[in-house]
Design a protein around this nucleic acid. Structure first.
Lengths: 243, 243
DNA sequence: TGGATTTAGATGTCTATACCAGTTAAAACA
DNA sequence: TGTTTTAACTGGTATAGACATCTAAATCCA
């Protein structure tokens, strides 16, 4: 399980190992995991190294400690799942639904002033505009429009979009989204939303505007979505900041 | 600065000290702080102890490290402000508005099954129910109903509520909310909401249900709010979880 | 039996040391 | 002068041990 010769740090190996046991349900919530000294003896590693692994897992919310008692498995929180959320696809899968989508339009347009400001690029810079109806279990869930600076994601095709845009971005272009800001508000469905989402006029929708950033701070994408209020609820967990 | 005889752990003292320097602007963003070895020598403490302090500050987002270069002060992110958000009052102040509220009703009721489940208490346990219209710059912003288990916050009075419920909870009862989950959805204003929020019937509202937890995991409060969609937008930053 | 005390074992704090791996700038070299 | 090497930093990983503090079970005693 633990390979001391590996270039991967020991604490990280132990971390991944324990994380696996939790995610596979072998270690159950509120169950005590072996003590630090047990890990230390079993794998012949120092107790401080074990602590480093456990501390990371505590920080990530997988474990919690009780002085004098032991270290325990945390309940799988919705939060952990949602924090990693980047795409509609991931979100729906988390909710146990099958995501799909129908492309409405796909073109390259010059960024008008407002969009340019939001994407932090110059006016009229080419931008991909992708409009899609997002579905869950084959029912319309949201109408989504994405804007991506063309210079960041060259050679985008309909095929890639229909397959998995995010997979392409992460694996082929090896770009990683590190942070995102969301603005969420309520509204009444507009005409295009009424028709694409198949709701009655006057129906409420949840508008979510997400701006995603890369590690270096580059603005990567702007996504405007209108969700059917009767089908979608946004769930979100937050920790109180230290004073 | 560092008192080795103090019952307060050394790493914690150093942590608070550095945090102060950052919050008071003495250490500026992207500025390097002294190296681990410097702290170690200056205060005659072990480097591992210094690392424990710095690690905590990195985890809390105050610092970031660069291998081979040093440890630097982070920019104060909006996220950090929003993460600490717990109450309507704090939220409005962040937005530069003056919060106020009008009490509609205040009573102790037995928890019905659904509420009991959400608060994680037994059925018919006494619960405070507080209904208020929340205002920003004297304009109705939201209709809010709070539920708090009576045994957790004994002796609540109208006066306390009108003054500052959260201040009372944190300072008098010394309870700290460590985590909260929010569910956000869009809807159409109901009759009571129409009248209290002074909107037309058919107007959209943003429904937010917040459940707050104490450090030990106790469910502390359930707050249901209906915000005027034309005045309120929920903003939220998230980091991508590590894979 | 029931309450106080002991004890074993858990996490928490801290030390002192060692070596590794990036980064940078000065020193040596061509 | 311009390039390369080197040395002196930085944080990252890992060890082995000490003592503190808290918890719960075992033990003892009235």
């Amino acid at each position: 399980m633990i390979d001391k010769q590996s270039p991967i740090p020991i604490y990280h190996q132990l971390e991944e190992y324990i994380k696996q046991l939790i995610e596979n349900g072998i270690l159950k919530p509120d169950e005590a995991i072996p003590s630090e000294r047990e890990y230390s003896e079993q794998y012949q590693i120092s107790r401080m190294t074990v602590r480093q692994a456990l501390n990371n897992l505590v920080n990530d919310g997988y474990l919690y400690r009780q002085k004098g008692r032991g270290t325990f498995v945390n309940k799988q929180k919705v939060e952990q799942k949602l924090q990693g959320l980047t795409s509609f696809t991931e979100d729906m899968k988390e909710r146990g639904m099958v995501p799909s989508s129908r492309l409405i339009s796909f073109e390259i347009i010059p960024a008008e002033p407002q969009l340019a400001r939001k994407l932090d690029i110059k006016e009229n810079t080419p931008v991909y505009e992708i409009k899609r109806v997002r579905m869950a279990d084959n029912l319309p869930m949201a109408l989504e429009t994405s804007y991506l600076p063309a210079n960041l994601v060259k050679g985008l095709t309909e095929e890639i979009i229909n397959k998995s845009l995010y997979q392409h971005i992460e694996e082929k272009l090896s770009l990683t989204i590190s942070e995102a800001t969301q603005q969420i508000e309520a509204s009444i469905a507009k005409d295009t939303e009424v028709s694409h989402l198949q709701v009655e006029s006057g129906s409420p929708v949840l508008l979510i505007v997400r701006t995603s950033f890369l590690q270096d701070g580059t603005t990567f994408e702007l996504v405007k979505s209108a969700y059917r209020a009767d089908r979608y609820k946004f769930v979100h967990t937050m920790q109180r900041a230290a004073k």
